[in-house]
Design a protein around this nucleic acid. Structure first.
Lengths: 224, 224
DNA sequence: TAGATTGTTAATCGATTAACAATC
DNA sequence: TAGATTGTTAATCGATTAACAATC
């Protein structure tokens, strides 16, 4: 993971409830993970979940989970656990991602198609509203409800659909040029699935996804 | 990210150089990321790199980078920086991933094909040696140098090729059953690209990749 | 020499954990 | 009531950062 975000320099105002204070990097990351597990738990019909169960799935210590949550309110019932449904709502409120967000995928190769078809984003309020490619062969093809568009259209679509998130599933050589265009068109978050190192202005966040890096890391703990 | 690994309870022996001591979770993760950037930097022909440049790309503080590295030796040259080539070698040594590791991909859909074709693993010494599917339509197809095999063969292949890492690019409903088979066949690290919550014995590491979770997190910092 | 960058110290802050009273 | 699990405290450990002398 790599983010271009500042740390929370929270100038704690003496509010008792302070829903307007910025979360620390760590808390935001953990809350997102709790949300993923809760979303899945809800799918399989779980009504309540304990901090210990959440800990088993997220590998975050159960005390820390209770601590993270209790900072925002008393969401749990002693002896019972947390209501899955209401905890999802609460965390979404805290993360301010209750809304719907539009994203665009670049590259209509295998990876791009897989991402566009995935419902992993949909579960969290993200909607893939456009897929782009530069290959004339691919432009015009249908991917689910979408039609692949040419990159030349990106600026217009990004403006019309109010897209702030772009997912890059293009060859490494094409990544930086595309990133420059996207930044220029007003995209604020770039998810980079190529292994290129992207240079962007400080107001834009680049997230480079590197399964190989995660694997190296997992393997180290297996080997030792 | 979610890992099933213990924290390093390092009982520091009074060695000056202690290459046998277990890295902490954080250090291992950061070293992996430095390695990714260094690998890319090498590709574009960089000879040396400063801690500041590494910091720009990884978003890890430059002091911390120097600190992480100097714990293992004096790899840098003051006024110059680090030699890219030799730092790659050093970090690989520290992470003990200088060797070659075989991995298997499960699911020959768009995502599975994308992963099998990617060279993101190859750069780090991982080799995709088998792709499996249960769909008779897909079994037998060629993906680069590989032929898609049926899941029925998984046990034999895992033993023959000494595979410890399995990448799951299958539908969520199929993930747990497959994970059980893999654990049974001796796989130690499972990379889960479905959004299913997998239950595995403690000696097996599950890494669930969740772009949506990362996105939630990135978006929070954009929205605030 | 002058400029740059490492290696290292010291000080601070947040994460982590065990433990347990409160309470469902 | 008995069992379970939260919410919270207190203590510890590692991460983070600024600053700067050492030195290439």
């Amino acid at each position: 993971m790599s983010y271009t975000v500042g740390r929370g320099t929270e100038n704690a105002q003496p509010d008792v409830e302070r829903p307007s204070e910025k979360l620390s990097l760590g808390v935001a990351a953990r809350l997102s993970r709790y949300l993923q597990v809760l979303t899945q738990a809800r799918k399989i019909g779980k009504d309540t979940i304990s901090s210990q169960e959440l800990a088993d799935y997220t590998h975050v210590n159960s005390t820390q989970i209770r601590r993270d949550l209790s900072g925002f309110g008393k969401f749990g019932k002693r002896g019972v656990g947390y209501n899955v449904e209401s905890l999802v709502t609460q965390i979404r409120k805290i993360l301010r991602t209750s809304g719907q967000h539009n994203i665009a995928v670049f590259g209509a190769g295998h990876l791009g198609i897989a991402i566009a078809n995935s419902d992993i984003f949909a579960d969290h309020g993200f909607r893939v509203v456009a897929v782009f490619d530069v290959d004339a062969e691919k432009v015009g093809r249908r991917i689910g409800p979408l039609t692949v568009r040419h990159n030349a259209e990106l600026r217009a679509v990004i403006e019309d659909e109010e897209i702030v998130v772009a997912v890059l599933a293009v060859p490494s050589q094409a990544a930086q040029t595309l990133a420059d265009e996207l930044v220029d068109a007003g995209v604020k978050i770039i998810f980079n699935y190529s292994d290129a190192l992207l240079q962007v202005p400080p107001e834009v966040t680049v997230h480079t996804s590197s399964p190989a890096v995660d694997l190296l890391y997992a393997l180290y703990f297996y080997l030792t």
